[in-house]
Amino acid sequence: MIYLVEHFYSIQGEGKYIGTPSLFFRFGGCNMKCEGFGCEEVLEDGTTILGCDTIHAVNKQHFSNYWTQITKVDEILSILSSYKLPPHVDIVLTGGEPLIYANEPVFIEFLNALHVAGHRITFETNGSLHVDFLEYPVFKECIFALSVKLYNSGEPLSKRVRGEVLKSITSNAKETFFKFTIGASYINIDLEDEISSIVKYAPKTQIFCMPLGGSKKEVEANTEPLVEFCKLKGYNFSDRLHMRIWDKEKGV
């Protein structure tokens, strides 16, 4: 059983394949809360929920109306077939954290069906959960965007940085790259050291840095300082096009 929060056809807004037409499947549930990011959702009753910019895919308690239970692969494949898409369009699996379902039979069936159909599959993951590449070889055909969380996420180090998991994913997956979320206030003398302490587990993997923000205004405020940081350190800057174009609107 898996939970699907939303699906939409758009362009990839972040990372190495930015601008690429992609069909997104956002799954519900995560092993982290990342309240340190400070992104807020205000409910109809005035309650403020704190977390990441996709908190509706993390907090089932307050956003259960978004969550749809999937028990059979045909239920999600019918969603895929309902779109009129170019052949072999990119499929992006995001969340929440999609890899909490890495051992679920219906999820594995879905991945195999996507691979057989010729889709390029990208996981947007925090890189902290084990993937069994031997038991489920379809993962070897996937791309992993490793959004490993930094100290500013508010999550403990032992939870957000798991070296053996990063080594396994980068050694076995078809392609990987790091994608760090950084706010202007977090750009300090320790940031490069923190990033280095993470990427040492996969030293040949490309590094992308993208601005923190749950809205267009926040992303724009964090962009210029981050660009300067990337220029100084030689990292790749990743914009967040979906935020700039659609702001807080979901499902685009």
Rank of each mutant, 00 (worst) to 15 (best):
G118H: 12
T122P: 01
D193W: 10
N112F: 07
A173K: 04
R162P: 02
I187E: 13
P156I: 06
I100V: 13
N103Y: 03
T181C: 13
F123D: 06
L99N: 08
R160C: 09
E194Y: 13
S196L: 11
Y151K: 15
V106Y: 03
I187N: 12
Y101L: 04
S158Q: 15
K149W: 03
G96Q: 07
F123Q: 07
E164D: 15
D132Y: 08
Y136L: 01
V165R: 15
K159H: 13
I169H: 11
E135A: 15
F144L: 04
T122R: 09
L150Y: 06
A102M: 00
S171D: 14
R162K: 15
F110P: 03
I108F: 04
A102D: 00
F177K: 11
A102H: 05
R160S: 06
D193H: 13
T170K: 11
C142P: 02
R120C: 11
F144T: 06
V148L: 09
V131F: 09
K149Y: 07
H130D: 09
S171H: 13
L150T: 04
S128L: 02
G118I: 12
S171R: 12
T170N: 07
F133G: 06
Y136S: 08
A117P: 05
S147M: 02
T170R: 10
A145M: 12
G95L: 03
F123T: 06
I143C: 07
E164W: 08
T176C: 15
Y101E: 05
A113V: 03
I121M: 08
T176Q: 01
N172P: 09
E192Q: 14
L166W: 11
G118N: 12
F177A: 12
K174Q: 06
E135R: 15
V161K: 04
H130W: 15
L157R: 15
N152S: 15
Y186I: 00
F144I: 04
A113I: 06
F139S: 02
I100N: 01
H130T: 11
T181H: 09
T181A: 10
E104I: 00
G183Y: 06
E141G: 05
T176D: 01
G118T: 12
K149V: 08
A173E: 02
D190V: 01
L146H: 02
A173T: 04
E194I: 09
D193R: 14
L134P: 01
Y151S: 15
C142N: 02
G163D: 10
L146K: 01
S153D: 01
